[in-house]
């Protein structure tokens, strides 16, 4: 099948994770992975982002597929249940708002900048080498650390389920995927 430019977006996803290792401010670019799918679903009424442009999905597909880093077993039934998918979406939302709250506290001067990346919402990894000061408020960097934490955590979860189940198992419970599907259902009616 003919390859398109968007079939190479996995490179962008990989680059994103690498850039955040050197300068955390690049984490802001991750907002694209939030807004583009939402805009496509709100205005286009499709999951065009998942279907075509998601670099992360492509990366999992490549690692689990071509590189064979996947057991290719069926995902457990509970992981594809609506309860888990919606529950994970809500959990993700709550953690995201908590991250925004921490950013706000730094902006407001009530809290100092924490130069750390939080993995799995629990483990603080030192990440000071990726911060070189900024022309902007430290709050800008706090958001970057927080956002990079979200991206790294979800990549890690995706990698684990890629190895355990099928390459793109992450797509089953990806909060963005669940959210854009809900938007499409609301926009188009539940029956296609």
């Amino acid at each position: 099948m003919k390859k398109h430019w968007y079939d190479y977006l996995w490179i962008a996803s990989l680059l994103y994770l690498l850039l955040g290792f050197f300068n955390i401010l690049f984490a802001w670019l991750g907002l694209l992975c939030f807004f583009i799918p939402l805009l496509i679903s709100v205005f286009g009424g499709t999951k065009g982002y998942c279907n075509r442009y998601c670099g992360r999905g492509q990366l999992f597909g490549l690692l689990g597929g071509r590189f064979g880093l996947s057991r290719r077993k069926d995902i457990p039934r509970w992981m594809k249940s609506k309860a888990f998918r919606y529950g994970f979406l809500i959990f993700f939302f709550v953690m995201f708002f908590l991250m925004l709250w921490n950013t706000y506290l730094v902006f407001a001067g009530a809290q100092d900048l924490k130069q750390a990346v939080t993995l799995l919402w629990t483990f603080q990894l030192p990440w000071h080498w990726a911060y070189h000061g900024t022309l902007f408020h430290p709050g800008v960097a706090q958001f970057a650390f927080g956002f990079y934490s979200v991206m790294l955590t979800s990549t890690l979860l995706g990698l684990v389920t890629m190895v355990l189940f099928k390459p793109r198992s992450w797509c089953v419970y990806c909060p963005m995927g669940t959210m854009t599907q809900l938007i499409c259902k609301a926009k188009n009616g539940t029956n296609p």
Partner: peptide, 9 residues
């Protein structure tokens, strides 16, 4: 259909 996540794989 009820369980499909519409990922497009």
């Amino acid at each position: 259909r009820s369980a499909c996540v519409a990922c497009g794989c």
